[in-house]
Write a protein that binds this DNA or RNA. Structure first.
Lengths: 332, 332
DNA sequence: TTGTACGCGTTATCAG
DNA sequence: CTGATAACGCGTACAA
């Protein structure tokens, strides 16, 4: 068994509180007793029980992080950044990958509360139900996708997806493309929705018909990008340019194009969000919007820590994004 | 504040123990009181305090997972698998990314103990010091890389890296290549070391000189793969085939080759470990060894859970790997 | 300077 | 069936 304060106390013939005082450097203790305690602690390999301490002190040093799919490069980078920021502040992460299951998300959320986390950073999947039937004021920061239908206030950090999407679309148009299609993300998610709306708005503003056949419904995954594009190829319906909702879909799209010998950007243009991952497309950057992952993570951490000191204070942050000129559009 | 058993007890005019019994379905309680408790619990949004419960019951439902870099596709997939397996068993993960810092690894390890985890799954970075000065018998399973220099027994799961490396090298040779170089991983890690040894052994067995200029020292990262190959190109020293320690290095190597218009496999061969990620090379699989990530994760979980029931039982498992015939070697 | 007593939220034992 | 009581490991107000 692990040594406890009590064990040490018995060992050195002191009271538990004195031992506690020594180990926490609180209160005054005679030098020799202090030494005795420290020696015993070392000898007995004493390890404090943080859970007990936090139960007593009514604090918590763990933050729950819920994400839909950690194999997605955007989320994994966010996770890593969050971990580092929190580590610096003395916090730990309980990691929850929901596999995009709303049910799992809810179960994880419940569990995190039971584990007494100091706060939760969640990038919800689909129409997140987290805030349904939730009367408790839990310290929760949403990232990327907003919770569905709640009049309760909440904290949120992301970028302005609609605006970014419009800018991107406009860039494509300005580059000379007019026949553009979009492969959407999961439209149950607000970020996907916003990007689609931005795309549609921009087409309209440019008097380009935004007919239904410009929109293909993906699900944020590689496979949907791949399959949609392969179908387009087979149907001889390839447009001049493909706008994929995220990098993963774009990789899928790219793979399908390459499989059929269609070159990017010579034969077709390709844009997306978060296409800058150098590891993923052998050094080829995909032109498009790049979300400031680090800043988003940092803001989320800041917000969740701040909410601890000022409970009930909610905050909504839309961070500036970057435009990346990659190698997947023809020069005008 | 969060409602506690005591709050409910006061609300319904019962003792704390009775409330506990109702909520845990233990012991007999009259129907009406049971209903009263349940109602109150719901009304007051009662959430049990797992930490308190586990303090009392002397149990723990959290497992620490320490990995060197979660953005590495191998580790992130492992993490995800581990999370899912543990979730099924009612356990949670405290996530620790060390950024390959041995110091951080040690700090995390200490912290996990303090947080009272039921066990730790660790893929150590470099020459892990985790087991130095460690007299306590902590439930710890090592994955991929073995701890450095300890006479203490430990649990470990991986593949037989040396044998796999020999097989891979032999395959390359059998495919007609003789001028092969290897870009190693971080040689402080046993897996990297083993793969290098396997490469060398196989060359010797085939009477191919294993001179020092066949070995380039990488560090498992994209950048090192890229830079080493670019230097080779500039020095006109490209071999017939490059053997990269892992997929990330191979991606870097591939990017460098592509940048200079060198085609794979037409102009040069490329093999590595874990090159099957369809997302990463636009559908092109890299020929080589594939580690059974899922099985490794599963085994690690099994071992860590088993160690809980049978403390001190250590186990070493080398799982079967697969050979993947991809698209990066010329057909013989 | 040190010890006693109490409580954090929970469960388990023992009485009634 | 129900309620005290103790204990898990720890920190702290109070007393000595």
């Amino acid at each position: 068994m692990r040594a406890t304060l009590k064990d040490i106390a018995e060992e050195v013939g002191l009271s538990v509180s004195s031992v506690s005082r020594v180990l926490n450097n609180t209160g005054r203790i005679s030098v020799e007793k202090r030494k005795a305690v420290l020696d015993a602690a070392k000898r007995m390999n004493y390890t404090p029980n943080v859970n007990a301490r936090e139960l007593k002190k009514q604090t918590s040093s763990t933050i729950g992080v819920i994400i839909p799919d950690v194999t997605n490069t955007f989320f994994v980078r966010m996770l890593k950044c969050i971990d580092h920021k929190l580590w610096e502040q003395g916090y730990n992460i309980i990691f929850c990958d929901t596999d995009e299951s709303v049910a799992r998300e809810l179960e994880y959320y419940q569990l995190l509360k039971e584990k007494n986390v100091a706060g939760i950073i969640v990038s919800p999947a689909r129409r997140s139900m987290i805030y349904e039937n939730e009367s408790q004021n839990i310290n929760c920061v949403f990232v990327d996708n907003e919770p569905y239908m709640t009049e309760k206030p909440y904290s949120f950090v992301s970028i302005n997806n609609m605006q970014a999407s419009m800018e991107l679309t406009q860039y494509v148009i300005d580059a000379g493309y007019r026949d553009i299609i979009m492969i959407t993300g999961d439209l149950d998610e607000t970020s996907s929705n916003q990007r689609l709306v931005g795309f549609q708005n921009c087409l309209r503003e440019n008097h380009i018909g935004c007919t239904q056949d410009r929109i293909y419904f993906g699900d944020c995954h590689y496979k949907s990008g791949f399959e949609i594009v392969e179908r387009l190829i087979q149907d001889h319906k390839l447009p001049e340019c493909i706008y994929a909702h995220n990098n993963v879909e774009a990789f899928g799209a790219y793979a399908a194009l390459r499989k059929h010998g269609i070159r990017v950007p010579e034969d077709i243009g390709l844009v997306c969000f978060d296409g800058e991952d150098p590891m993923s497309l052998h050094g080829i950057n995909i032109t498009g919007i790049v979300q400031p992952v680090e800043e988003i993570a940092e803001a989320a951490v800041e917000m969740v820590l701040n909410n601890m000191k000022n409970p009930g204070q909610h905050c909504r942050k839309l961070l500036p994004y970057k435009f990346l000129e990659g190698h997947t559009l023809k020069k005008n």
